[in-house]
Design a protein around this nucleic acid. Structure first.
Length: 150
DNA sequence: GCCAACGTTGGC
DNA sequence: GCCAACGTTGGC
């Protein structure tokens, strides 16, 4: 069992949206490192910290779970999609995704500023300067530290 | 809206 | 294979 953090802009897809739909295919990841985490690292049942980015109160807002193995992201073949990739074909898919299921919403947002103040989270990838990855690995210790803040 | 960071692209 | 230009992310 491994742990991850996945970012989402709440204007586009929030923890409340995930709660409403239950399970969501995580379409639109177009970064190789993030893709590789989904393809090579994630297994069904892995824990996911759901993080709201680019919003008034960035932070971890709840918990989700990896709900499938990785499979090709269908939006890469869709000419009308923002995520269309002309170099991807069904024979040679370039982008993968996993399904993500809602587990629970935190009572409150554990904000980015609060995370930065935690000595236990020293070295956490989310807090590194210039980090832009939308999917990050989380250690068990980091997971426990963040759950303990709620 | 600004800007730092950094990934990607494409010319050479 | 280098590297400048460009685009995107995301906090503020």
């Amino acid at each position: 069992m491994h742990y991850w953090l996945m970012k989402s802009e709440p204007d586009a897809f929030s923890i409340d949206d995930l709660e409403r739909v239950g399970t969501e295919p995580w379409t639109g990841v177009r970064n190789y490192q993030a893709r590789n985490f989904m393809r090579d690292g994630m297994k069904p049942g892995d824990g996911v910290l759901f993080y709201h980015s680019s919003c008034p109160e960035p932070g971890v807002v709840g918990i989700a779970e990896v709900a499938s193995e990785a499979y090709p992201d269908p939006t890469q073949y869709d000419r009308k999609s923002d995520y269309y990739d002309e170099k991807a074909t069904p024979e040679n898919p370039r982008w993968m995704l996993v399904d993500v299921s809602f587990k629970r919403k935190f009572r409150r947002t554990v904000g980015l500023d609060e995370l930065r103040r935690q000595a236990k989270l020293e070295g956490f990838a989310l807090l590194q300067r210039g980090n832009r990855l939308s999917i990050l690995p989380v250690t068990r210790a980091q997971w426990n530290a963040i759950l303990g803040l709620e």
